[in-house]
Design a protein around this nucleic acid. Structure first.
Lengths: 345, 345
DNA sequence: CTGAAAGCGCTAACAC
DNA sequence: GTGTTAGCGCTTTCAG
């Protein structure tokens, strides 16, 4: 491999000059610059990342902690990851992927000076990674909102508003009994940071609008999802509008409604909380509150970069929830009797 | 941050001694070792990755190239990624994630000495990343089998055998007309490396067993998948057994069969080619040829490590295809007339 | 506008 | 069994 000295020699300049044409940190005359660039090209020179990190204490790498926990929606995770990686590249950054759930990896890559910043996904209410993140000298960005962010930056969808808006939309259409099918039981019990906010938002709006809200977890599997639908109607047979926050279960829930001969949106309205592309991929495009996973990932990177460049203090950013009306919500329609055919499968 | 010299000072030894207790590359007396380890712990010392890379020309990082192409199955990708990351950790390696489709990233991380090896996923028949991979001085492992591996190591499921076995299983049960629903059109046309092998395997077995094989791509969306089922029956109405290689479409295909009043496995047999967990997650556990994505990811890392440690030549490893009989295949049953109700949705 | 040179923190000879 | 020290390839003062 060619080194910076090889380039300097070939271009007949000093190593510092080569370094400076590379970094642009001081003005270089046009002819010199041209000679250097030519040499770089001809030698196929690439600065050695380790040497650079050692000399500048900057790695141009950021860590992405993406725990592959039970029942998380892989699809959504990948969207976050995509957003993070793409945004990182636009800042000339690469991404080191950690999937361990524990804080060990954070310590290793942060204190080992492998990365300049760390972004943590799938944050829980009381996330055990927070102490390690605080201890690190690199800035950290949480995707999610823990109970106590402890001075770390956070980005997330405004799940409170998402819950509010979904319920408000249904209530405004005259629905008096609303169901909410959430994430898998495992996620529900893990106190993932978005859950409480979504529920609080939905409940407060329900109370205010004087509608009944029945919220329960929902497995992602076909049988689990269908069981959840049945359970929901068992708990509140007069439900005419449901909010679904479970991308995997979505098709199964829709299928179950069909099996129960409940036409959407005539007899039952559905608003999903999911990435736009999954809302659009359904046979009937779903009215949905968008979960802009790619944008949030991108935002996390931008926040990291801003903290890196200007020593700015931590901020927390909640992305506005926007509901888009599509084909699955309509004015409430009184159903005389619920047609339950639990074994129609 | 504490440096190795700080540790040496605290433990009253030379820096090289600290280095050697860390690497174990030369014997250290028990008491010295203890003193050093104590100092390390007390100072919270972590070797600086860049300095280490510079001095040893080894980064303990490997690159994983996972292009997020259209219509690839995110679920399966994540399984590969999981396998790679976990296996890497077991070798004290971290993973740098690249998602660009082009070869630029390879050049950057390999020639920039950011990684010791690179693993590339989603390999096509004539993959444009191969030249860059060959040019790099780091070993490369392809997950997939290109037309010409050009001296690179490859791992993949033995898709030829997978096709063979799926068809053989159905043929042995007496099915004379077999359908094959594959991946999305986009993947089909991109000449992803597994496709040709799967088809060749299936076709040769079909020819040998004298059964008719109707193979076609299948979109992953609900409507697309259902349309593919209809199209398949339109092309060959007497089909009684189908092979499905499309995890996303699987539930929709099963749903379509149900809508067509075709009971599985009495009237129609289904064998899937997918990760075991998705085969088991269906309402009826599917007879399937396992796609052991996690293991393959792990194998890729092992191959990288072996090439790193012993300068061994490139090898290509095809993981045996194993078919597990579950609830969705049964002896062929002659159907007098296909009940087609295309608009039953 | 350009050069010389002092590190950055570690590894691995080379000594003893 | 342990210590000394010369780099690894870059960035960034300090000089001019």
């Amino acid at each position: 491999m060619a080194t910076i000295d090889d380039v300097a020699k070939a271009a007949q300049v000093s190593t510092s000059t080569v370094s400076y044409v590379l970094s642009g940190k001081r003005p270089i005359s046009a002819p010199t610059k041209a000679r250097v660039e030519k040499a770089i090209k001809e030698l196929g020179y690439r600065p050695h990342a380790g040497a650079r990190a050692l000399a500048s204490s900057q790695t141009n790498v950021l860590a992405l902690i993406a725990p592959l926990r039970a029942a998380v929606n892989v699809n959504v995770i990948m969207q976050f990851v995509t957003g993070v990686v793409q945004a990182a590249r636009s800042y000339e950054y690469d991404v080191l992927l950690l999937t361990q759930e524990d804080a060990g990896g954070i310590d290793r890559v942060a204190n080992g000076s492998m990365v300049d910043a760390v972004i943590a996904m799938d944050v829980e209410e009381d996330d055990e990674r927070i102490p390690a993140l605080q201890a690190a000298r690199q800035p950290a960005i949480l995707i999610g909102l823990p109970r106590d962010s402890g001075g770390l930056s956070c980005v997330d969808l405004d799940f409170h508003a998402a819950g509010t808006q979904a319920v408000r939309h249904l209530a405004a259409l005259g629905h008096k009994h609303i169901g909410l099918l959430g994430s898998d039981h495992a996620v529900w019990e893990r106190h993932t940071s978005f859950l409480e906010r979504l529920l609080t938002g939905a409940r407060s709006e329900a109370t205010q609008r004087k509608v009944e809200l029945t919220a329960l977890p929902c497995a992602s599997s076909e049988v689990g999802a269908k069981a959840a639908v049945d359970e929901m109607f068992a708990q509140s047979p007069r439900i005419t509008g449901i909010v679904v926050h479970n991308e995997q279960a979505l098709p199964h829930i829709m299928a179950r409604l069909r099996e129960l001969s409940l036409s959407v949106p005539e007899e039952i309205s559905v608003v999903a909380l999911c990435p736009q592309d999954v809302a659009l991929a359904q046979p009937i495009p779903l009215t949905s509150v968008d979960l802009p996973a790619v944008s949030i990932g991108r935002a996390a990177v931008e926040m990291a970069m801003s903290r890196l460049s200007s020593e700015q203090p931590a901020e927390t950013r909640l992305v506005a929830a926007v509901l888009t009306e599509r084909g699955t919500t309509a004015p409430a329609h009184k159903r005389s009797a619920r047609v339950m055919r639990p074994n129609s499968l």
